[in-house]
């Protein structure tokens, strides 16, 4: 059973177009996307800036209210939850963000940082809090005496461990990982990715993993969602999707990923131009102005996300295959 299901999730932002003109535009940051995260599994989201992956994370975390669509957590619609249910949701969904230097309050001790979600949401004695903090520090591989230090005394990788410990304080079901390793040194990244994997195996966590490093996403995820300008263009099993992309954008994106070995020569698909503004997305398929395999229909009709073989693709190239 999925832990979290999003159906038709939409988020539009109002944007003032010019300084003096009163006319307003709508930024379609996330436009009618659906996905589900299975228990104990990782859903990876990839895409370039402006594709809506960070907005999606904010919607899941409740930092933004959706304009449309619904999020169901353990089968219950968030909109219909009573305050107790909302509190339960808050406790069950935690996050780890990109910048370990910005995500820890600089003037709080590590023990207070880690215990904050706990103290805020539950009535616990200080002895229990201390025990739980030490337990969490041990879980993420930090020594006990870290508890009484301040964030600036730790390196980036250690801070990210602290951020993970804090996210786990309430024993959540789902952790949103928004670029958790991209600010870290190369030799530290593997430590953190391994830690996240071990924690998932041990605690049965689900992850929503967002990163621009495709190899890291492919490595961490069970399922990958590819987004472009607020839309999902392809969803599928991580390994097969990474090996054989079906949507032309996915193909271009994965071909642009850097090789892990100099002998690894991939077909290079260079896309023309840059991602258009989400304020005024192209008609039809949003990718059609840059698509190397564009057809007349692409500019007119928006392709629906439909099953193609082992996955879902939103592309007119596969219209035939479906019929």
């Amino acid at each position: 059973m999925p832990v979290l299901e999003a159906a038709g999730l939409t988020k539009h932002f109002q944007a003032r177009r010019g300084l003096f003109s009163g006319s307003r535009g709508v930024v379609r940051a996330v436009d009618d996307i659906s996905f589900s995260i299975e228990s104990g599994r990782t859903l990876g989201v990839v895409g370039e800036s402006g594709c809506g992956k960070t907005t999606t994370a904010k919607l899941v975390l409740g930092l933004e209210e959706p304009t449309g669509g619904s999020i169901r957590f353990e089968g219950r619609d968030l909109q219909e939850l009573d305050p107790a249910g909302r509190r339960h949701y808050r406790k069950s969904v935690q996050a780890v963000f990109q910048d370990p230097f910005a995500s820890l309050s600089p003037r709080m001790r590590i023990s207070d940082i880690i215990a904050e979600p706990l103290v805020t949401n539950e009535t616990v004695t200080s002895g229990e809090v201390r025990r739980r903090v030490l337990e969490l520090l041990d879980l993420v591989g930090l020594p006990e005496r870290s508890a009484d230090l301040f964030p600036h005394e730790f390196s980036g990788g250690q801070r990210q461990r602290i951020a993970i410990a804090r996210a786990l304080a309430l024993s959540p079901k789902l952790v949103v990982l928004d670029e958790p390793v991209s600010a870290l040194d190369v030799s530290i990244r593997a430590q953190i990715l391994n830690l996240l994997r071990d924690l998932q195996d041990r605690l049965g966590l689900s992850y929503l993993f967002i990163a621009h490093d495709l190899a890291a996403v492919a490595h961490m995820s069970h399922t990958i969602v590819v987004m472009y300008l607020g839309k999902i263009v392809e969803v599928g099993d991580a390994q097969t999707l990474a090996r054989a992309p079906k949507h032309p954008y996915t193909a271009a994106l994965f071909s642009a990923a850097l090789p892990s070995h100099p002998d690894e020569r991939r077909e290079e698909i260079l896309l023309a131009g840059e991602v258009p503004s989400p304020l005024n997305p192209p008609s039809g398929c949003r990718f059609h102005p840059r698509c190397p395999q564009v057809m007349p229909v692409c500019g007119q009709q928006e392709p629906a996300l439909a099953q193609v073989g082992d996955r879902f693709v939103a592309c007119h190239l596969y219209d035939q295959a479906r019929h």
Partner: peptide, 20 residues
């Protein structure tokens, strides 16, 4: 060895322990 590869099957990465 510590870099994740696109085609590996969720093997554990060989991490470099410690800090520079």
């Amino acid at each position: 060895n510590s870099i994740p590869r696109m085609t590996d099957n969720r093997n554990r990465l060989t991490a470099i322990e410690g800090q520079p």
